[in-house]
Computed example of a mutant assay.
Amino acid sequence: MSEFLPLAEAVRRNLHDGDTVAFEGFTHLIPHAAGHEAIRQGFRDLTLLRMTPDIIYDQMIGMGMAKKVIFSYAGNPGVGLLRRMRDAIENQHPRSIETVEHSHSAMAQAYEAGASGLPCAIFRGYKGADLPKVNPDIRSVTCPFSGEELAAIPAHRPDVTFIHAQKANQKGDVLVEGIIGVQKEAALAARRVVVTVEEVVPDFAGLHPNLCILPHWTIHAIAVVPGGAHPSYTHGYYARDNAAYLEWDKISADRELFDSWIRDNVLSVGPEIFAARVEPLR
């Protein structure tokens, strides 16, 4: 059952050293505030799951929090490389990390399998691709009905999933609007779920019935963090901060500049700073 908590307490109760954790969001609703709280609390040896690791994982990797990253595309969206991730892979700075690469489809299928309580995902894919040569988790099975050879990969079952959403109601249900991505599947696949939201409303009366709603019994903790997806956007609340993504390319290219940025923008501030960074849509 969902419980309303301050972000620091929600993270402290649900994330632990050595966990497999997903901070999911697609284009918008990326849970940056939750990621920054994890950095402040200094977790170690995490396995990071994400369809499209972007700058929040670059920051966590740069802080030495990750031992392994399971992903399908890694980059600073619209800009280029994840330079802290590359430094870890190529130079083992600040530590070495293991990488497991999949296709977008495979990652989505693995979340779906986890959400369905299945041990693996089976799908058409990887035919003619080279990823199976470097990823031993990609296997093949024969369909017992058609004889067709299909791809199989382990289901994603995170210890904890963090997502950001627009609203929670007073009962603890969560409303996700706009591009959904795999947040729903990542939440349902996880053993524990923490959601940051822009606001709490009395109920969802009068909203379109086809919106994505996670019921309160799927969620362990909700933290109200206005602006908590910045610099990504939250549909209906604020726009993407393109300048921040461009600036990150410069910051992440230099180890000392990265350390200074983390100290000034993460370690020495709290989640309330996120509200000050966004300009509400008019």
Rank of each mutant, 00 (worst) to 15 (best):
P94F: 03
R282F: 09
C120R: 09
D17P: 12
T27D: 12
M63G: 06
M51N: 10
L257H: 11
D58T: 06
F71K: 05
A38I: 15
I138Y: 09
P132N: 03
G117V: 02
I180A: 11
L46W: 14
R240M: 14
V134L: 10
Q59D: 06
L281M: 14
I30P: 04
L82E: 04
I153Y: 02
L7K: 05
Y57E: 15
I213Q: 14
H104G: 06
S268T: 12
F43P: 13
L118F: 04
Q41D: 08
A221F: 08
K167G: 00
W248N: 14
A110K: 02
I70C: 04
V225E: 08
P136T: 01
R191M: 03
A276L: 13
I262L: 07
R157T: 09
Q92D: 09
E148F: 05
I153C: 05
L211R: 15
N169P: 02
A121P: 00
L131Y: 10
P202M: 04
V195N: 04
I138K: 06
D249C: 02
G236T: 01
D87P: 01
S116P: 01
Y233F: 11
R240E: 14
R157N: 05
E149Q: 14
N135E: 08
V201S: 06
V201E: 10
P53Y: 07
A152V: 13
R157G: 00
Y73F: 12
T27C: 07
N242T: 10
D173H: 13
H208K: 12
A110F: 00
S96L: 02
I180K: 14
W261G: 11
V195H: 06
R139I: 01
H93P: 00
D137F: 02
I61K: 07
F71Q: 08
Y245F: 15
V225T: 05
C120L: 03
V21C: 06
E24S: 12
M85P: 00
V200W: 03
Q183D: 11
A244Q: 12
T27E: 15
H208L: 11
F23H: 04
D241L: 02
R84V: 04
Y238L: 03
C143V: 02
P271E: 13
F23A: 05
E90F: 06
E101P: 07
Y111W: 01
R139L: 08
S140D: 04
P31M: 09
A74W: 10
F123T: 04
M1P: 14
Q109T: 01
V174A: 08
G228T: 08
T27I: 11
Q170P: 00
Q92R: 12
E37P: 07
E256Y: 03
Q166F: 01
E198V: 00
F145M: 10
R282D: 14
R12E: 13
G206T: 09
H28A: 13
P94R: 07
C120D: 09
T234G: 11
S96C: 01
H216C: 10
E112L: 07
G75I: 07
I39S: 05
R157H: 07
K67A: 14
